[in-house]
Design a protein around this nucleic acid. Structure first.
Lengths: 345, 345
DNA sequence: CTGAAAGCGCTAACAA
DNA sequence: TTGTTAGCGCTTTCAG
C-alpha cells in the first residue's frame, strides 16, 4: 500500500468526499472544477456550495499528472536585487495572475554552468514553459528547447544567432535619442560609459550613441568612451577619469541608471554642479532615478511591459503548442528630468 | 482514455521503458532512483547506465502524487527590486540547492489582500513549506498554517503575537551600537529617521537609538526624530528638514541604507560636506552602501545568513513534520566606512 | 535482493 | 446531463 508517509499538512479531502457529500459522481465534481459546460446549473451550484463549505482544493499533482499540464512556468534569472529585474518580474507576475499560472524561480547567480543544468531540471519539473531573462549562454540549450518544442521566451537578449521568440527594447534608438537630446541642448563634448560589452544591449547602446554623433557631425573622441559594466562603481570611476581630463566633456551618458548614480556621486565629490557644470543622462529609468536630486534624465525602458509581453507570448505558445519566432522590440522613450542643462554654444 | 492532450514537450520515456531496457522490473528502477539500499550493486549500475543513456528523468508530478512530497517550497515576498530582499533570497537559494528543493515565488506587491489568498494557493499547490518575508498581516493566516501543521518560517517579522518559527536580526542592538558609535565620536546632536513604524524592525531600531542616548545621558530631542518609510525619498526630505533647523544635528542616523542615500543627496545639495560637516549612518549594509562616496558607515544585517537560517529551519521542519517554535535573532554588527567623523566636544 | 501489484487523486473518454 | 472507468507515472508494500 502506498502513501505510508502521508503528507500530514495537506488537506485530506478529495474529490470523492465532495462527490459523496453532494450526492453526485466524482466525475461530475471534476467537471465542475474544470468549468465544463456539460453540467446542469442546478447541480453545479450544489457542488460548488459543497466545495466551498468543505474547503476543498484539488490536488495539483494529480491534475498535472493526468492532464499533462502543470500551470507553472519557470523563470530563469541571473540575479535578484537589481531593480531592473524586479520590474520585469512585476510585469510577468501581472500577466501570470490573469492567466492562472504560478512561477517557479531559478536564480543562476551569474554562474553560467547552472543555466544549462537548470534547463534540464525545469523540463523535468513539469513546468509548462520558461522565460529566460538576460541569459548568458543560451546557445548551450536553445537547440534542446527547440527540438523538444518546449515553449520559451528570451528577455533582453540580443544574440546574433537568435531566431526564437524574444522580447527586448529599442536600445539603439534609445541611446540615439538620448545623445541627440544632449546635442540639441548644445552639447558637443559628450562622453559615454558603456555597459558589459558581452551583452547585446550594451553594444546597441554604444552604437546608438555613435550614430547620433555622426548624424550631427560631432566627432567621436575615443577618450570620452569608457568601458563600464553596468555597476555603480564603474560609473563613479569612469566619471572621475573623464572629469580629470584636460579636455573634459560637458555631458556624460551612462549606459544605465546605476552607473549614472555613480557618475553623479563622483561629480558631486569633485565639486562639479549638476546640471549647471555637467549634464548627466542614464538608461533604464528604474524607480530610484526619479528619487535622486536632481532627478535623473534617462531613457525609459518599458521593463514591466517587457515582462508582460514575454509572458503573453509564452502563454500563447503554451496553449497553441507551437513555438513562435521573431523577436519584439518595445519602444524606449526619453524621460526628461533635471540632470541635463542647456549649454551655450 | 485519458491523456488526449499530451504534453508534447515532456520526455515520453517512463520508468517502464527503462525497466524493459535494463531487463528488470520497474519497481527495481524505482528503487535505484530513490537510492534504496536493497539493490544489488551490479543491478544498480546496470540500471543507472540505462537511465543516463536514455536520458530518463522521473516525472515529478507522479512522484509527488504518490509520495505526498513535492520538494518545492513557497516563498512569499512583498516585492522585488529591493536589494534587501534579493540578498535574503540569495541565502535561501543557497540552502535550497543543497537540500534539493525548488522555489515557487509569490509576490504580493504589497497588496495585503493577496497574502491570505496566496496561502491557500500555496497549500493547494502541494508546496511542502513556506517562507514568509516581511509579511504584512500574518495574523490572518498563521492560525490556519499552524492548525494544518504546515511548515513555515517568518523572516524579519517582529510581531507581538508571534510564537512560531521566525528569524530576524538584532535590530535593537544594531541601532544601539550605531548610536553609541556616534556618541563615542563626540556627537551629541544625533538625529534619527525612522522606517515604516508599522513594522517591528522599525520600532526596534528607534528603541535602540533612544536607549543608547539615554544610557549616555544625551537628551532626546523630538525635533530630531523624523518619521520615514524606508524609501530613499523620505531620507532626502527628512534630511532637508533636519538641516534647515536653527539647532541642527551633527549626525543623522537613517533606519536603512536607502534612506541614508537620500540623506547623502540632500546634504550634498545643501552644500554640507560628508563627513566633515555631518556624519551619516545607515542600517542594512546592502551592496550599494560600499559603493557610495564616501562609503556609508552602517549596521550590517546578515541578510544572506537570515535567508539560509530560515531555510534550514524550514527544511528541518519539513523532514520532521513538526512545527518548531521560537524566534532567532542573528547578530548585526557595525561596518565602519567613511561617512562618520569625529567631532570636537 | 527482486518482481508483482495496489493505489496516490484526478481527467477525460465512453456509455447511458 | 450524468455515471463509470481506464489509466497518468510512480512509490511502496507484500511475497517470494
Amino acid at each position: 500500500m502506498a502513501k505510508s508517509q502521508e503528507n500530514n499538512h495537506s488537506s485530506t479531502i478529495t474529490i470523492i468526499d465532495v462527490a459523496r457529500e453532494a450526492g453526485v459522481s466524482y466525475g461530475t465534481v471534476s467537471r465542475v472544477m474544470n468549468d465544463s459546460p456539460n453540467v446542469k446549473s442546478e447541480t453545479r451550484e450544489r457542488v460548488k456550495e459543497v466545495i466551498t463549505r468543505m474547503g476543498f482544493v484539488g490536488n495539483r499533482n494529480a491534475r498535472s499528472l493526468v492532464s499533462g499540464r502543470s500551470n507553472v512556468i519557470g523563470l530563469l534569472i541571473p540575479d535578484l536585487g537589481t531593480a531592473y529585474i524586479g520590474e520585469i518580474i512585476r510585469g510577468i507576475d501581472y500577466e501570470l495572475e490573469t492567466a492562472k499560472y504560478n512561477l517557479m524561480l531559478y536564480t543562476t547567480h551569474r554562474r553560467e554552468t547552472k543555466e544549462t543544468g537548470y534547463i534540464s531540471s525545469l523540463i523535468q519539473s513539469g513546468v509548462d514553459g520558461v522565460i529566460l531573462i538576460l541569459p548568458r549562454n543560451p546557445a548551450n540549450y536553445l537547440d534542446k528547447l527547440r527540438s523538444l518544442k518546449y515553449p520559451y521566451v528570451l528577455v533582453d537578449h540580443q544574440g546574433i544567432d537568435e531566431q526564437g521568440p524574444a522580447v527586448g527594447a529599442t536600445n539603439f534608438k534609445g541611446a540615439f535619442d538620448a545623445t541627440e537630446y544632449l546635442i540639441s541642448l548644445g552639447h558637443k563634448k559628450i562622453a559615454f560609459i558603456t555597459g558589459s560589452m558581452d551583452l547585446g544591449c550594451a553594444q546597441e547602446r554604444l552604437s546608438g550613441y555613435k550614430a547620433a554623433l555622426e548624424k550631427h557631425n560631432v566627432s567621436i573622441n575615443q577618450d570620452w568612451i569608457i568601458e563600464g559594466d553596468f555597476e555603480q562603481a564603474t560609473g563613479y570611476v569612469g566619471a572621475k577619469v573623464l572629469i580629470s581630463q584636460s579636455n573634459k566633456p560637458t555631458a556624460i551618458f551612462a549606459s544605465n541608471d546605476m552607473m549614472a548614480f555613480g557618475v553623479m556621486n563622483a561629480v558631486r565629490d569633485m565639486g562639479v554642479k549638476i546640471p549647471i557644470d555637467i549634464s548627466i543622462i542614464g538608461f533604464d529609468d528604474i524607480f530610484q532615478s526619479s528619487q535622486t536630486m536632481p532627478g535623473l534624465t534617462t531613457v525609459h525602458q518599458p521593463l514591466e511591459q517587457m515582462g508582460r509581453k514575454a509572458t503573453k507570448m509564452l502563454v500563447e505558445m503554451m496553449s497553441e503548442g507551437e513555438i513562435q519566432s521573431g523577436k519584439i522590440e518595445l519602444p524606449t522613450h526619453l524621460v526628461i528630468r533635471d540632470s541635463c542643462h542647456k549649454i551655450e554654444g
